[in-house]
Design a protein around this nucleic acid. Structure first.
Length: 837
RNA sequence: AGGCGCGUAGCUCAGGGGGAGAGCGCUACCCUGACACGGUAGAAGUCGUUGGUUCAAAUCCAAUCGCGCCUACCA
């Protein structure tokens, strides 16, 4: 089932793919799934149980058939869900880890690694899940802190001279003890009279051994050693040649070795052992303790360290090269913060247990000769034993860890071991996008396998994205009941809004707290875009018309310049995987530049109030801006942009095949008036200044007012006169008079913007006390700012040590503040005198 | 036990040595010929705490508190 993690992951990948296609690259995005061995087997077993049967009754072959059947029903579901997210994968190349091609790759890899001595079989301690009835790799064990007890148990010396006390959290395993260990440096145990103890309950004589592994500070400094049920004890056992006695079987029941406890469940046995010890006076005390206990990552059952025969990959030699690849930059992990985590794990890596005692998966290609026990590992089932010629060969029943096949994904999916065209074209791949939770499970292992078998890294970049959590920052999980279903979100708010939300919140290095409220905000944005498109299309009756630069208005030139910067900024952000920056930049451009200013500014032209020439100029720019904006947005918002694209006259085919604005031939020449930005900024400031006064003086929006601007700056006056119609239009004025400094109109409010004074006439409605309040408030603000700049400018250290441009900037700012302050004060005085007269 | 990340406006978060930002929420006014899922304006923050480096710290360093995560064989 598709979850939020998938949604984020797929959205990131899709943004990258759509973006790279717009930029003209040959893009391959292979979709697919793994067979999720244990999880899938669990699901099907549950289903069988509900039908009153189980896999053993069915037999292996029939069971596998049942799994395939289940998969064919549910397997395509996730692919369909990906499509609803807008994922633009190469659907024809969909792969599954159990496909024949991938299975051949798996066998091939297994055989080769075996021949190279990098796969071996042996009896080792592994993590055993009694519920799933299989071995688990170390990674697949989740440690969780649990309240428990530390039991102190007396082990009598064999010579009857007393006893030694050991401490344990798992008393039932004592039945498998084959020694007691103490630290050779521990003074308490240096001069023991005897070298053995009698194991209580079973009365087995076991040795006392010296091993520096034992922590003198923990418990009593004496450690019971159970090689068959504890990884450390196993190591100690190897060092001291201790026997390994299994007392818990693969079903979690006590074995005959457990004596009278045989057949008891492991936890029942614990109670029983404790009771017996108490009765015999051998339980010295019990202490509460918090400690970490391993749980199965699939079913949460407490796992048991268990001695059994398993297959392992010797990972060290593979890991070394995978470390090198990141160190020398062949593969780059983004954000970099994860490289250390990667190194850390790789450097401390231990052999990987790859055999699983389940049926759903790739059966290990190893056969044992019934006659001479010779092991044959090969691609195909051998006819006879090459050692003794016997014909009865039995295949290993275990299957391989799912991650073993997933580790081959970057090349097995492209047809390896054949040297296919796909491999030649696309290996090594450009980027892997993934969550950090599978950095070890998947990324690290793909690195190792890719380098070993392809002699090159599987991907140049690894982009590690955040985890999606719930509103409170908790991990979403079915058991907590806090999962948000992406499809539900899509039904309510649409795919585009959902994707935009994910992109906007995907800041590097921080988890995403998801809530519907946030998606709603981006639905508004999609709506805004749609309406801007609708409005534009009302006027755009024809396709691209040549932009005649000489005819363009200031807003025309300005929006083109803004579009240029937006385009470059978005490209830069996506190139460096800063999806939130790209989304934010686009949001701001569309809403606060295109809609708020440009569309509003050109309305009079579009409605024909300014003549045909200006109308055509505006239309030519509007077409181009809408066209390019849609392309920029498309990787994030595939559906709505496609829809508007098709309605836009003069476009052909899908927007997916469009050309990214920065790659257009006329990109540089088209968007080329840098002056337009400061000029338009000035206009915007004036309009905002007037609106501000209107708001504060409670002037009704419908009231059309007169404004007089006075400035000694010739250039400023010129620009404003040339564009007075924009100001009149957007500030809702009756008239806008630009003049040199002069008399102050009597009944007017005033404001100072960019050194110019604007008098907003308020015939008959001016409220002088209100105006005084306003000016005084503004003066108070200015006073604070001036104080800050004065402090800096009076500091000699600042003047001598700060960079010249910074000093200049502060000077300029200070100058502006002071001028503004003077103008405001002069006016305040005048108001006072007008009021007095 | 180690490692990492986060504490910035009521909420969710950007930013990352020289003028505190956005979205949502809030207040006021407005159905102005794309959009009330809208428009215009506004209020709102000692940038966790304490020290240090610096002419200058929300930003760098150290300590500290709180929260979260990852790795690990202490029985």
């Amino acid at each position: 089932m598709l979850h939020m993690g998938h949604a984020l992951n797929v959205t990131m990948q899709d943004i990258l793919c759509r973006y790279r296609r717009l930029r003209g690259d040959n893009v391959l995005w292979m979709p697919g799934t793994d067979h999720a061995g244990i999880a899938t087997q669990n699901v099907v077993e549950k289903k069988l149980a509900s039908e009153g049967t189980d896999r053993h009754k069915l037999g292996r072959e029939k069971f596998i058939e049942a799994v395939w059947e289940w998969r064919s029903e549910s397997g395509s579901a996730i692919i369909n869900q990906l499509k609803r997210l807008g994922a633009s994968c190469d659907w024809k190349l969909e792969r599954f880890t159990m496909d024949e091609g991938l299975s051949i790759a798996v066998r091939r890899v297994f055989v080769q690694l075996y021949q190279e001595g990098l796969i071996y079989r042996g009896n080792y301690i592994i993590n055993w899940c009694h519920r799933c009835h299989t071995a688990l790799a170390d990674l697949e064990v989740e440690h969780e802190e649990v309240d428990s007890h530390l039991y102190y148990i007396k082990y009598p010396f064999s010579d009857g001279s007393g006893s030694i006390v050991i401490a344990t959290t798992r008393p039932e395993t004592m039945l498998g003890d084959t020694a007691v260990a103490v630290n050779p440096d521990d003074p308490r145990y240096k001069n023991l009279e005897t070298d053995s103890v009698i194991l209580p309950l079973l009365n087995r004589k076991i040795p006392i051994i010296m091993d520096s592994y034992v922590d003198m500070a923990f418990g009593t400094g004496a450690l019971k050693v159970t090689p068959a049920h504890d990884p450390n004890d196993f190591e100690i056992g190897k060092r001291h040649n201790l026997p390994e006695i299994k007392v818990i079987d693969d079903n979690g029941k006590m074995t005959p070795e457990a004596g009278k406890f045989e057949g008891l469940d492991r936890f029942k046995c614990r109670e029983s052992v404790v009771k017996s010890l108490k009765r015999e006076g051998l339980l010295e005390k019990m202490e509460p303790i918090k400690h970490n206990v391993g749980h199965c990552y699939r079913c949460k059952t407490i796992v048991e360290p268990n001695l059994s025969r398993q297959w392992f990959v010797k990972v060290k030699p593979l890991a070394e090269k995978a470390i090198d690849a990141v160190e020398n930059g062949s593969t780059k992990i983004v954000p970099e913060i994860w490289t250390n985590t990667y190194y850390d794990w790789m450097r401390n890596i231990k052999d990987w247990c790859i055999s699983r005692q389940i049926w759903w998966g790739h059966q290990i290609p190893a056969w044992t000769c019934e006659n001479c026990r010779h092991i044959i590992v090969s691609m195909e089932a051998p006819e006879t034993c090459p050692a003794c010629g016997n014909g009865i060969l039995v295949q290993e029943t275990d299957v391989l860890d799912t991650w073993f096949s997933s580790a081959l994904w970057p090349f097995s999916t492209m047809g390896w071991p054949e040297n296919t065209q796909l491999l030649k074209t696309f290996y090594p791949t450009s980027v892997l996008v993934t969550g950090f939770d599978i950095l070890f499970f998947w990324v690290a292992r793909m690195m190792m396998m890719g380098i070993h078998f392809m002699k090159d890294v599987p991907f140049k970049d690894v982009y590690v994205h955040a985890l999606v959590r719930d509103e409170e920052g908790k991990k979403m999980s079915k058991s907590k009941g806090n999962v948000i279903d992406p499809l539900n979100i899509i039904d309510q708010y649409g795919t585009d809004a959902f994707r935009m939300t994910l992109a906007a919140f995907a800041a590097q290095g921080r988890d995403i707290k998801m809530s519907e409220k946030r998606v709603e905000g981006y639905r508004h944005f999609i709506n805004k875009l749609w309406n801007a498109g609708r409005f534009s299309l009302m006027h755009l009756k024809q396709g691209y018309t040549e932009i005649k630069f000489a005819d363009l208005s200031l807003p025309d030139k300005w929006i083109l310049a803004r579009l240029k910067h937006t385009s470059e900024s978005v490209a830069g952000s996506i190139d460096s995987y800063r999806f939130n920056d790209a989304a934010g930049t686009l949001y701001k451009f569309v809403w606060h530049e295109l809609c708020d200013w440009y569309l509003e500014a050109i309305k009079p032209c579009l409605y024909g109030h300014k003549g045909e020439e200006k109308k055509n100029a505006a239309l030519s720019v509007l077409w181009r801006v809408l066209h390019d904006t849609l392309i920029l947005l498309h990787p994030f918002i595939p559906f709505v942009t496609e829809e508007i694209w098709h309605k836009l006259p003069g476009t052909k085919g899908s927007i997916m095949k469009a050309v990214f604005p920065a790659d257009e031939k006329d990109f540089a020449s088209l968007y080329c008036d840098p002056e337009s930005e400061p000029m338009m900024d000035l206009i915007i400031q004036m309009i905002t200044g007037i609106r501000n006064v209107r708001g504060e003086m409670n002037i009704s929006p419908s009231a059309s007012i007169d404004v007089i601007l006075q400035s000694e700056d010739d250039f400023l006056r010129k620009i404003l006169s040339l564009n007075e119609d924009i100001i009149i239009n957007l500030a809702g004025l009756k008239s806008f008079l630009v003049a040199e400094p002069g008399e102050r109109p009597k009944k007017a409010a005033m404001t100072v913007v960019s050194g110019a004074i604007m008098y907003i006439s308020l015939e008959g409605i001016i409220d002088f006390s209100k105006e005084k309040d306003r000016l005084e408030k503004e003066l108070a603000k200015l006073k604070d700012e001036i104080a800050v700049s004065i402090k800096k400018l009076r500091n000699d250290d600042f003047l001598s040590k700060a960079p010249a441009d910074i000093v200049e900037k502060v000077r300029e700012k200070h100058q502006n503040f002071v001028e503004k302050q003077q103008k405001l004060m002069t006016n305040l005085d005048k108001i006072r005198s007008i009021e007095a007269s």
